[in-house]
Design a protein around this nucleic acid. Structure first.
Lengths: 188, 188
DNA sequence: GTCTATAAGAAGATAGAC
DNA sequence: GTCTATCTTCTTATAGAC
């Protein structure tokens, strides 16, 4: 990896973390400067504005989400196990998810009200997971309509759980609600 | 109503709308000045800081939520009808809810990451609805545990639907998902 | 590519007149 | 109670040296 590319990734990683943990508007340019240890000028060289960094973060997340889902496909041969693996990955991240909410959902919710570009990018990230889930439910034998409904229910409940358990700062609540999502795999 | 109180309410109404439609950090003090038609000095006379306005908005929402739920109690004699009335009120607000998300959830999600006071106030608003829902499910004959689970499921799904349908800017999606919440009233 | 220094603007909070 | 005017700080963006 060239040095420029390395710096670029460092900025995106740092900004992605800060936007997630504090929100976009509560993250100042100078926060990214501090966190990366780079100079303001250097960051500006790679990204012409804060919004430009945001777009880069989203692109990175599209890649990461795609990689995670592909990883589940490789790890588990069976659709039921894949969905279970997906839910388990939520459980594994319960501490972060309870504290800061969903990486994508919280950012989308903060910025989607006004920023169309962000809403479009959020949609792309969401679609990756939503379509993957639908595919798994189809493989389980559900009809197209049913599979779409199941995927959407699992998805919306996941998002809602993140909102609620963050407000209540309650990991037990998170765990209980997310575990219940597994009933969606089998019940008719 | 005294003039001071009138002005105070005017500020809260305006700020509540702006915080909801644009988010807290994307609403500047000057936006509230413009929207109310009042002077900056006058607003500062009633609220010593922007965060003070925020707290006022939350107090107002606690009152409004309480009033809405009491209203449902008066309007419908039966628990099933009350829950249905609750869900119908969501459907009635679909345009706003799809565009800006949940009044309380979106603000809670934006600010809950860092602001403890806000998280505490959000919790109070959430609890009102959550406990009310649980009470209705208890009246329907569910066990304490089941009623709590139902209330929480209805609540989290509602929140999740708001996040998702905002990202997709899709009222049809909102309507479809919210309507499905009615199955929670009867199914075992 | 990376740095320091600075500009230009917006934000929230304050002071004092009426 | 309500206004105008000002202060201070923070935030983003830019310019130019190395």
């Amino acid at each position: 990896m060239k040095q420029g590319e390395q710096t670029r990734n460092k900025i995106l990683k740092s900004a992605g973390k800060l936007f997630y943990q504090h929100g976009f508007h509560q993250t100042a340019f100078s926060d990214i400067v501090h966190d990366t240890g780079l100079s303001k000028g250097n960051i500006t060289y790679h990204f012409k504005s804060k919004e430009d960094i945001l777009n880069g973060v989203f692109e990175q997340r599209i890649e990461n989400t795609h990689a995670s889902l592909t990883n589940l496909d490789k790890k588990y041969p069976d659709a039921a196990l894949r969905i279970e693996g997906f839910i388990d990955s939520l459980l594994k991240g319960k501490s972060e998810l309870t504290r800061y909410g969903c990486r994508n959902g919280s950012l989308a919710y903060e910025l989607g009200k006004s920023n169309n570009k962000t809403r479009e990018l959020s949609r792309q990230v969401f679609d990756l997971t939503r379509h993957w889930l639908k595919k798994q439910f189809l493989a389980l034998g559900f009809s197209t309509e049913q599979a779409g409904d199941r995927a959407m229910e699992l998805f919306t409940r996941g998002q809602g759980i993140c909102v609620i358990s963050q407000v209540y700062s309650d990991e037990k609540l998170f765990e209980h609600e997310v575990t219940q999502l597994k009933t969606l795999i089998h019940n008719p």
